[in-house]
């Protein structure tokens, strides 16, 4: 895909976030301007408290900025209602969390199909896509297990499958390898990198992990709520 043809998926303009910590204002982001383009495999890095997770939460609509504007695929998310945001996240964003965050009472298959169910995808189509994606993430044969019956690496694979199955515009991953051993982490990252190359799906990571940084095509460093550096690699 030619770089000049890429479209802007996320545009963050002057994004500021100030938390109230027991009456003391804490500046998590201080006017961040960033654009993420389709097909990127981007890592946002920085020390603890630099604003990585906050930035991820704001560009996904999980949190609201104190100031500034975020557009995702051409729509300003701060102008959306609660229901519009839910629909928007469901249709456009796949999440991968550090703590996996699977729904504990649902089986692997049900967890993966949950978002498609919300979107009204027919049962047969859901089942086919679940089987296909579980094959891609190497989880054939565990469809009927509950999350508690899986290892950490398997649970994260389920989370990746859940994030990807509805073919969202972008996948946001917050410290996806933090709870995994290095081999499992490497395997999963290689898998995501391959999927990024094969499908052109956009990935944005928030991470400390050198394994992720090594594989990122773009590395954005945040410090004290500001973009310190923005490096694109070949």
């Amino acid at each position: 895909m030619n770089q000049t043809e890429k479209t802007d998926v996320i545009i963050a303009e002057g994004v500021t976030k100030i938390y109230d910590a027991d009456g003391i204002p804490v500046n998590a982001l201080n006017g961040v301007d960033l654009t993420i383009q389709a097909g990127e495999f981007t890592a946002i890095v920085g020390p603890s408290g630099s604003g990585k997770t906050t930035f991820l939460n704001i560009i996904s609509g999980l949190d609201a900025p104190t100031e500034g504007k975020v557009s995702l695929a051409g729509k300003v998310i701060s102008e959306m209602s609660g229901n519009e945001l839910s629909d928007y996240r469901r249709d456009n964003i796949g999440f991968i969390f550090q703590a996996y965050n699977l729904i504990p009472v649902l089986t692997v298959e049900e967890n993966v199909e949950y978002i498609m169910l919300l979107a009204g995808v027919p049962k047969a189509e859901r089942h086919k896509r679940v089987i296909d994606i579980l094959k891609v993430v190497g989880l054939e044969g565990v469809e009927d297990r509950l999350p508690t019956q899986l290892s950490g690496g398997q649970q994260q694979r389920v989370a990746i499958a859940r994030a990807m199955v509805s073919e969202p515009t972008i996948i946001l991953a917050d410290e996806p390898t933090a709870n995994l051993d290095s081999k499992t982490g490497t395997d999963l990252l290689e898998m995501m990198r391959r999927l990024n190359t094969d499908t052109g799906m956009t990935y944005v990571f928030s991470t400390h992990d050198p394994l992720v940084m090594e594989r990122a095509k773009r590395l954005i460093t945040l410090r004290d709520g500001l973009v310190e550096s923005d490096e694109t690699r070949e």
């Binding site: 996904s60 999980l62 609660g82 229901n83 839910s86 629909d87 996240r89 469901r90 249709d91 999440f95 969390f97 965050n101 729904i103 504990p104 949950y114 978002i115 919300l118 979107a119 859940r162």
Partner: peptide, 16 residues
């Protein structure tokens, strides 16, 4: 609370 947060994060509507 966390579970409800996750449900909403992945696209579950408030009414659901």
């Amino acid at each position: 609370t966390r579970e409800y947060g996750v449900l909403k994060a992945v696209g579950t509507k408030p009414i659901q």
